[in-house]
Design a binder for these strands. Sequence first.
DNA 1: CGTGGCTTTGAAACATTTCAATCATCGTGG
DNA 2: CCACGATGATTGAAATGTTTCAAAGCCACG
Lengths: 219, 219
Amino acid sequence: MTLTDWFHDTKPQRPAEATDQDLLARAGVPMAFAKDEEIYGQGEPADRIYRVVSGVVRTSRFMPDGRRPIGAFYHAGEIFGVEQGDQHEMGAEALSNCVIQVLSRDAFAAAGREAELQKLVWEATLRDLEIAREHLALLVRKNARERVASFLLGLSEKARHELVDLAVGRQDMADYLGLTIETVSRMITQLQGAGIVEFPTYRQFRICNRHMLEGIAAG
Amino acid sequence: MTLTDWFHDTKPQRPAEATDQDLLARAGVPMAFAKDEEIYGQGEPADRIYRVVSGVVRTSRFMPDGRRPIGAFYHAGEIFGVEQGDQHEMGAEALSNCVIQVLSRDAFAAAGREAELQKLVWEATLRDLEIAREHLALLVRKNARERVASFLLGLSEKARHELVDLAVGRQDMADYLGLTIETVSRMITQLQGAGIVEFPTYRQFRICNRHMLEGIAAG
DNA sequence: CGTGGCTTTGAAACATTTCAATCATCGTGG
DNA sequence: CCACGATGATTGAAATGTTTCAAAGCCACG
């Protein structure tokens, strides 16, 4: 599928998995990253494509004032690190121990898969835009309780087990949601008290009443 | 410049004006829209490309709950209405009386300018992403005063006169900034009281102390 | 001139942050 | 293996910022 095809395609676009995984899976090199390890830094050359095999990755950008707007979280199966320019606008770090499959852009070229590469870039950009817009809507319209509920719900949709791994600490949640640690903590306590979610440990939870959680998240 | 060229271009990408304007200016049909008129609706086929000649346009999306996250504001010279799918994810409306140059996508095809069209789509998407990210940073990290200051500053950069047209009412500002009308109003009063900006009328302003305004906007 | 829509202002209610203290958890070394 | 210390999470109380509700003011338009 070339970009032109893509462009004229009438169906709603979904991050396609099949072909991406093909090449990445065949030619990509699996690499392990430890928790908190940097996968690539802001400003480094963006000459590789990454796919999460396991673990959770976060992209974020450091601002002049020292604070850190977060781009997105990436979970197993998701592709990241694909950027429009040739240097990374945001850095990426492993939030947990991760296995990441890595493929250089040159490998695409070598394989004569330019078109596929373009498609990856395009899809990654669209996905980023969609994520940014949803995030925007969350920040504009939702209060603390709703934000936390949305966040947990979002995580649970990506997760494969009933017991969901938070992967991030409270500070990261707070940054992402535009709240303080303390507020996040209070909201979690509240949701837990209402029997809607359950936190066996600080970093993993289970949804007890999905319907209610969705009600809260919707506002 | 094809998309492949673009992709390999090393320079930081800026919404290019030259070629876009060429085709749009030559083949585009100028149309007038009255204030508050809908240019296209959410869900309508996205088969045209628009460029603002004069006036201000806003894109926004209606959410299930009735509220309205705003995509962006577009001023003279900017291109909008270009979308990845073939229907508009957001509607567009004229915030003031506008002149908009319109060109159908088919016209690009007819002119054998597919590549240019692709480039337009690509650039528009990148710009949207950049706007969304900046907006995100604003909402996550800034308080009411800083948000309003940033907004005014942003408008003034797009404007061509010292006396800047707001184009939007307080309600629109508030929606965009994630605040209430009243808070926006108070912040404006405050900035005015401090002699940083001046509002000769409700809908236009002048920056008296740009340096200070920038200081506030930065946080 | 009114009238209607938008804006400003005020006061009280509310949500969130801040600051401070306590508590849990986990890894480490005794 | 347990105790300890460090890190991160929770809780509380007061302060702050923002919203809400209500009223008054301003401007544009007929």
